[in-house]
Write a protein that binds this DNA or RNA. Structure first.
Lengths: 226, 226
DNA sequence: GAAAAAACGTGACCTTTGTCACTAACTTAG
DNA sequence: CTAAGTTAGTGACAAAGGTCACGTTTTTTC
């Protein structure tokens, strides 16, 4: 039965792990699952939002547009909640989310979510922890972005994909050069030049979007020293 | 009686407003109030933390140090919670907080705080809202910082102090030029030059740290256009 | 209230990165 | 397979802002 989908779901978030059977059943009745193909927009900045989104599978980017420029705030791998801040605040999405790879997403009714926070302290606590971790990560990212040179940021990003997203020294970049620039606050051209430099210095191997880190230690050094 | 200090406190946070008498009494028994003079460090990056801090009165800055450079993350006016993310995460402070003006602060035992989240859904919800608002503000700040030119950021900052901190066109900057630079990711010298430019263009009046916004509309324009 | 220290202003110069323009390579749709 | 549309690489140049050096003003301290 569809109503039991949350009860039997094996990709539960830490928070949902604390729900009892009744609560899981209510959650199941108030959420809907959807598939987004690579490149599709899951929700868009400035539109209204009345759902919390749980990314069950896939990879997405969150981004903010301002003055015709786009900045990627974060690249998020499942499992994770998306848009808690944007939905619980004033119901207007302050940033956009789109999928970088085919992604499965659960839309959770906001009132159900609020009710769960109200009735289940452990659930609320896990949500708080999730928000806290995010905030710290973002602080870190923000400091790096404004203090490191582009070389350091490009190195950071390559290491991020290798160590945190794909767990492999060889991976396919899920973003193009322009998005790479938007992620670290620079331009398409500068990213190109930097990647070529890393390639010429034998730190990475590259065939289009396929990257292999040959000398991750050196990349780490570059990342550290700015 | 000291034990009743939270019961009778008139500067309660929205969250604490939802506590019942028993919970307020417990809170009162597990918190301590302290005064920090201007310039004092309330807590320091990399040190251990086992308290949530409620800023009852005053003005503080939060900052992160990296590679001998300092970045001010935020300037926060009472009333507000400080260091929820840093304390609920791994107990290590990931940033420092110091007072820009004499400030009164309540140290709340972390286990008491957790207990209140667990037992009072409305309290938990308010904390979540607080974290969400913070996150959105920080996203915004981060995008601005990396996309606007220095002129726009200096204008932003002057408007911020005028509109959000002091509610007055004339105010005394609580930070020196170097800190002003740390706040917007530039240097002491560049801030000096920019302020002089604004002064020469009759947008502001200045005597040392005392600033008067003469043409806030123009400053807003400069802020908007980058 | 004088000496020392901190904060500030300013000019000259240099580096990093952005911008523009153009070409090449790769993707996609028919 | 081929034309059209994307995406990427690269050179020349410009500009914003960082760095350094030094002089001045303000604040602190004794």
């Amino acid at each position: 039965m569809i109503k039991e989908k949350c009860l039997t779901c094996h990709i539960k978030s830490a928070a949902v792990g604390y729900l009892d059977e009744t609560q899981l059943r209510i959650l199941g009745e108030n959420c809907a699952e959807a598939l987004f193909r690579k490149g599709e927009v899951i929700f868009k900045q400035d539109s209204l939002s009345s759902n919390i989104i749980y990314l069950k599978d896939g990879l997405v980017k969150t981004s903010m547009e301002w003055n015709h420029k786009n900045q990627i705030l974060n690249i998020i791998k499942a499992p994770a909640y998306l848009g808690i801040p944007t939905t619980l605040g004033d119901k207007i999405n302050h940033y956009s989310v789109s999928s970088l790879e085919d992604s499965v997403v659960c839309f959770i009714d906001i009132n159900t979510f609020k009710m769960l926070i109200d009735r289940n302290g452990k659930f609320a606590y896990e949500i708080i922890i999730h928000l806290c971790k995010n905030e710290l990560k973002h602080y870190q990212r923000c400091v790096y972005r404004s203090q490191k040179h582009v070389s350091g940021l490009v190195a950071d990003t390559l290491l991020f994909f290798s160590n945190e997203i794909y767990m492999d020294k060889t991976f396919k970049l899920p973003i193009d050069r322009g998005e790479f620039g938007d992620l670290i606050g620079t331009t398409r051209e500068t990213v190109s030049r930097m990647l070529k430099e890393f390639h010429d210095d034998h730190l990475i191997e590259m065939k289009g979007k396929i990257v292999t880190l040959i000398n991750p230690d050196m990349l780490t050094k570059i990342s550290m020293s700015g």
